[in-house]
């Protein structure tokens, strides 16, 4: 997990991604990897998760897209409804916040299952002049 975060920080540094956006991607990366470990099944643990990063600009905004490919159980996070929020601490159930964090910290999510792998693209966008 820490190795993945260290790789992300280095890759973002090479592509001049601002620190605030690196933190957003890092939070998403941690939540996705935690889900793969917890729910991906044996096939997820037998093959490495492939990470890649792309960054650029379009329409005056800058973006960075982190792509993950894992061999775990097919799982499309875009098809999952967020769990209703507890109204009181007594009613709260620990856990289940990972998808909420991924949805809120990313600006765009893309998912496909192909070649026996889950492919998830997480994009963050920012105004380069701000």
């Amino acid at each position: 997990m820490r190795l993945a975060s260290e790789w992300l920080e280095q890759a973002c540094g090479e592509l001049d991604v601002p620190a605030e956006q690196v933190l957003r991607l890092d939070l998403c990366l941690n939540e996705v990897l935690a889900n793969i470990i917890a729910h991906g099944g044996p096939s997820a643990r037998e093959a490495p998760v492939i990470l890649s990063l792309d960054a650029g600009s379009d329409g005056g905004d800058s973006y960075a897209t982190l792509s993950l490919a894992d061999a775990g159980t097919p799982f499309n996070p875009l098809m999952v409804n967020a769990r209703p929020q507890a109204r009181t601490l007594a009613d709260a159930t620990p856990g289940g916040l990972g998808l909420t964090m991924i949805a809120n910290y990313s600006d765009r999510l893309g998912y496909a299952f192909r070649d026996g792998r889950n492919h998830l693209d997480l994009t963050v966008r920012w105004n380069a002049s701000s």
């Binding site: 933190l23 890092d26 939070l27 941690n30 939540e31 935690a34 601490l89 007594a90 709260a92 620990p94 856990g95 916040l97 990972g98 964090m101």
Partner: peptide
């Protein structure tokens, strides 16, 4: 410096135990 959902889970668990 970094708060993931696993950290939030620990906070909720201990807050509930206090309650």
């Amino acid at each position: 410096s970094f708060l993931a959902s696993i950290g939030i889970r620990a906070i909720i668990t201990n807050a509930k135990a206090q309650l």
